[in-house]
Design a binder for these strands. Structure first.
Length: 258
DNA sequence: ATGGTCGCATGGCGA
């Protein structure tokens, strides 16, 4: 089973690019974040000719928003409002006996200090709340994907030392993410298949030449519960970042033995 | 140290 996760940064503006990814990669399920659209305006119908008959989403006007586009039926759709913030940051489904959690974690603002920056405080609290959830309900036959807005390892950023005080790579949030990973006994599928080397899934729009400078971060993740750790491959579709009018994130693909 | 670019929605916020 092939699963792709992509922070699409507007599902409506990028619907043609989504179509192209589905055509090229043919995953069973595509998981999207930052759809930035109300549910009723999400363009799911255009993917039906490719066999993607099923969808599920939690839409929100302008901000956030998570969605699934699928070839296989999606059951037990749940949207968890962690911290009761009312922001569309989580949706989960069950397909072929697997639970897939699709997350868009808070970015956390610019200042990495909870006392000075309530967005950073919110990010840390959000992760704690997710950890509490998976502590009470230990994941089995589960997958966790999404834009977690944290690059945990040195090799997940272009310069570890320069980014130690930059939100997305600070020790406090990295530790929080690792606690969540440990609590759920989650396996980072990407690093299982690519244990060494610099790999990124996000490059800022602001750089003149993103490929040349390559100042990226690996913010997008695919984790699986330990009982289904026999994945076969995981890779980033880096070339998508070079497409015309694309997202600032590249999709991440996982192939699982299910 | 600063500003650089996007998307949404049409001013300014969030990333």
């Amino acid at each position: 089973m092939k699963i792709i996760t992509w922070n699409v940064n507007s599902i409506r503006l990028r619907s043609r690019l989504i179509y192209k990814i589905l055509e090229l990669e043919n995953p069973e399920i595509l998981c999207l974040q930052e759809c930035k659209s109300p549910t009723e305006n999400m363009p799911f119908d255009i993917f039906k000719p490719l066999g993607y008959k099923y969808s599920a989403c939690w839409g929100q006007k302008s901000y956030n928003g998570v969605a699934f586009i699928s070839k296989i039926p999606l059951d037990k759709i749940e949207k968890k409002d962690f911290l009761k913030c009312g922001e569309a940051r989580h949706i989960s489904i069950v397909a072929r006996g697997l639970t897939i959690h699709n997350f868009y974690f808070p970015a956390g603002g610019d200042i990495p200090d909870s006392n000075l920056n309530k967005k950073f405080h919110f990010k840390l609290e959000y992760i704690k709340e997710v950890e509490n959830y998976f502590n009470k309900k230990k994941p089995s036959r589960s997958i966790l994907v999404g834009d977690l807005n944290i690059a945990p390892e040195s090799d997940d950023v272009w310069d570890h030392k320069k980014l130690l005080n930059v939100v997305s790579h600070t020790p406090i949030e990295v530790n929080q993410l690792k606690n969540l990973q440990k609590t759920g006994d989650w396996v980072d599928v990407f690093r299982k298949h690519n244990p060494k080397g610099k790999y990124f899934s996000w490059w800022s729009y602001r750089s003149k030449d993103w490929k040349l400078s390559n100042k990226g971060r690996r913010l997008d993740h695919i984790w699986v519960s330990a009982d289904i750790r026999n994945s076969t491959n995981c890779y980033i579709l880096r070339s998508v970042r070079d497409w015309d009018k694309t997202s600032d994130h590249a999709p991440v693909v996982a192939e699982l033995k299910i």
